[in-house]
Design a protein around this nucleic acid. Structure first.
Lengths: 370, 370
DNA sequence: CGGCTAAGAC
DNA sequence: GTCTTAGCCG
């Protein structure tokens, strides 16, 4: 059975707000690491991956891995019945088709209890390879929101270009063209190894593990299917795949390598890139969180509250659909900072890291001129 | 070429908000005086005239008169990409079909640049004669907004009546009738010469000039007219001419005049009609702004922040469409005060004067009982 | 045509 | 955080 007590219902509410427009139904994969959700958006163009680490809960117990098939619209409604600062407990029995939600006001006698029907969802737990990127831009999440919102008024897509000059967001529209240039706040643009970092260093662990086992097979694609489903390779999976392709394995490698590398990095650069370093400690594929979560986060993403950090090993120039980026930017309420990770011709990773976990979006670039 | 740097993008944003529903496309007539826009509303019932004086800019250069044909919807979108306190620079090359807008955040590395397509617009730069009116009501702009908004809930039109009693706004509707009476805040209702005034005393130069000549005749109050006009009556021409003078000089004058005016004002107040007095000092036809803009404005329109000033030479009673008045009242965000100038059977002038210029609306009265 | 959901303003 | 308005779906 699952019993997970979250200090603030607000976290769940924000997460749902962030993804409910993108995805209608999804499996909340619960296991010892925590709760993970992975899904392609309804049109299979983007992929969203959410993690709430076990340590992010006030209390967490999950005897065995269980997928909870949730209609996000329903869950959103149920969550609207909670106040942001209510203590929220999720409970589900093994094999149950109900999710129990209990809201306790911190300082009151009020206890609200809801039970929501679960559904069986064909979950393609995709293997998201942890790639190394050519560039990462770390900026205040509200700045990112503003940029994509502004440019979305003008055109459909934005070209994001990272160069020594800084990062430029440019969009062309019928009535007007726009271009916004952000320069590195201070210091020079740095390189170093660029991989997605979570504060604890565990990031997509949940997904990974499963993948590892099944992935072995070598289908790139299977992984997704394999782990939980064995589903068909319906379209959904494919997109993801592109990237995954190799990635399954990469995932595994990543963790370990990643950590090591991180250490290395710290030494090299000014710590600016620095956020990564911290994680090493938590190398076991499991999430190490707890103690440092709050700190680590600060350390990582929030080190500089308002600055722009640009790390670049190679010039990148990619074009994306603004509609999706605007959607992703809703997650700004979850973290002060957002990381944009890019390599030419591979999907953009938009990552928001918060104390209890993260939400990451992957979006394939537009090709050609469209 | 044009290069105009505005301290606060917010001013332009407010202006566009105020007129974009009334007009879809319009020419921004740029010349040494500043930037002027004049247009009939889409149904040709109302006329709006906007002026941003050259001195209202942080920096202003316009080598030769040029009309910039702008789609207001497009400009509104582009302006939404600016923060209110961004420094906004407008640039256009001669004969260009693009308007360049640059937004610089005051304290950041952020620079956003937009280029908007211009269009050829058949501009009828109308000569708006500066008429002398029988009555002027000066009231807080939010009070005016409230009145027309309230009455618009009841009926389609409002009868505005200025008498010794004060000013009455009365509307009849199917469900209810309403009537709002505002009395002169203090002192008695005054007469005197009633013409549109801008804080600097330059106001609608473009329009007025024509009238001036006629006015010259000796009204005590002519001052306003006299000082600046002497222009020809051609519409476009006028504008240009007034000041072509030269900017440098203006600046000088401005400061000085401005200050003087303020002083004067304080004295005249009770003179009640007083608003005009101020201008005499600034007789040089130039706009006096800058240094004291903020102050001067206060002085003029805002002398009494919350009071109602009624000037009347003759009883007037006119009926107008509330729909338009509600629309006009959106400009309340630009100025604390609004002036309603009326004579029987001629269009109402609704004028908002702010530090950098003004926005004025003209609306023909309804005739008969409709 | 009405209801619901989402976005923007106060 | 709440309310209001606009856009989308049923």
């Amino acid at each position: 059975m699952l019993e997970a007590k979250l200090q603030e219902a607000g976290l769940l509410k924000k997460l749902l707000d962030a993804i409910k427009e993108l995805v209608t139904d999804a499996n909340f994969e619960c296991n010892e690491e925590g709760i993970n959700l992975q899904a392609m958006d309804n049109s299979h163009v983007a992929l969203v991956s959410v993690l709430i680490q076990a340590a992010g809960f006030k209390r967490y117990r999950c005897d065995r891995p269980m997928p909870l098939g949730v209609n996000l619209g329903s869950l959103t409604k149920v969550l609207k019945c909670a106040k942001d600062d209510d203590i929220c407990t999720l409970k589900a029995a093994d094999e149950a088709d109900l999710l129990n939600l209990v809201y306790e006001a911190k300082n009151s006698d009020r206890i609200a209890e809801y039970e929501m029907k679960l559904m069986d969802i064909d979950s393609d737990q995709l293997g998201i390879p942890e790639t190394e990127y050519d560039a990462r831009v770390t900026l205040p999440s509200n700045e990112f929101s503003r940029i994509v919102r502004d440019l979305s008024l003008l055109g459909e897509s934005v070209r994001i270009e990272v160069s020594k000059e800084g990062v430029r967001f440019a969009s062309e529209g019928e009535a007007a063209n726009g271009s916004i240039l952000l320069r590195q706040t201070e210091g020079s643009i740095s390189g170093g190894k660029i991989v997605a970092l979570s504060k604890d260093g565990e990031d997509d662990g949940e997904v990974k593990e499963e993948d590892d086992e099944e992935e072995n097979e070598d289908d790139d694609e299977d992984e997704e299917g394999s782990k939980k489903k064995k589903k068909s390779k319906g379209k959904k999976e494919k997109k993801v795949k592109k990237e995954d392709g190799d990635e399954d394995e990469e995932m595994g490698d990543v963790d370990e390598d990643g950590e090591e590398e991180q250490d290395d990095e710290s030494e090299d650069e000014e710590e600016s890139n620095g956020k990564k370093r911290k994680k090493k400690a938590s190398s076991s594929s499991k999430p190490a969180k707890k103690a440092k979560t709050s700190k680590s986060k600060k350390g990582d993403d929030d080190d500089d509250t308002s600055g722009v950090l640009i790390e670049m090993n190679q010039h990148v120039s990619l074009t994306f659909s603004l509609k999706y980026l605007v959607n992703f930017s809703k997650s700004g309420s979850l973290a002060n900072k957002v990381q944009l990770m890019m390599s030419n011709d591979v999907p953009l990773l938009v990552a928001y890291e918060f104390d209890q976990g993260h939400i990451r979006y992957y979006l394939a670039p537009k090709i050609g001129d469209d």
